[in-house]
Design a protein around this nucleic acid. Structure first.
Lengths: 121, 121
DNA sequence: GTAGTCTGATTACAGATGTAAACGAATCGG
DNA sequence: CCGATTCGTTTACATCTGTAATCAGACTAC
């Protein structure tokens, strides 16, 4: 549904968007760097399944988890929220901020330029 | 300091970034549209002051609140977090998302174009 | 078949957040 | 003076989040 996905949950979704279906253990393994215990990963998986962000398929007595929401849709929604909240809905100031903070590589700039050219038609 | 500012708190900061110093009642009045009670606004002001995001100046037995953090710095940090989390640090996909969702007006695009041109030097 | 083992489900618990009511001190209007 | 008003402070409380431990049932390896 349209429930929000928290930051920790997002990391779990990332794993499954990259590769699915996976078992809880698989997901935990791929999140080793996070330092979370298996129990924590299970909790996050359950919460995500409960809010409809993940689909579960039974595989014997365990589940295989797969994303049930589109990454692009969620990312788009979150972006929209942030731009609305921080910049009154205008994206240029956001880009300007990133630029000011030296967060934009020349590759980023080239990418943006190409995108703008495309948008202009 | 570097504590995060929540969404509700952000709305309070917005008021004060726009015009300060203000009393609690002033802030609440300018937030009428939010539907919050005066008590709620007071709580948010206290929390913000406690985390150092607001400075207070005594004015008789009440306070005048003013921002103690720079809006641009906070907005930049939050933007950075979002871009890192959702787009692996690359801002172009974010803009692309906004574009796809029809969130970009032609004014936005022109603004971005000008910005890019500037960044390229 | 019985002791581990694996798995989801249940329970836990502190801190953040949204949203306020209640309280106590100060002050103002009369 | 005294009741009403006005402030900030304290307390409240449900949800959400991060982070797990524990439990109960099923299965596996002797």
């Amino acid at each position: 549904m349209s429930e929000r996905i928290s930051e920790a949950e997002w990391q779990v979704m990332e794993v499954l968007w990259r590769d699915s279906p996976l078992t809880a253990l698989d997901v935990a393994t791929r999140l080793e760097a996070s330092g979370w215990s298996l129990a924590t990963v299970k909790t996050l998986l359950s919460r995500l399944a409960a809010k409809g962000a993940l689909a579960t398929a039974e595989d014997g007595r365990r589940y295989l988890y797969s994303p049930a929401v589109d990454r692009a849709a969620i990312a788009g929604g979150e972006s929209r929220r942030l731009v609305d909240r921080l910049f009154g809905g205008r994206p240029a100031p956001l880009v300007a901020h990133l630029a000011e903070r030296g967060e934009l590589s020349s590759a980023d700039i080239a990418e943006l330029e190409a995108l703008i050219r495309e948008l202009k038609q």
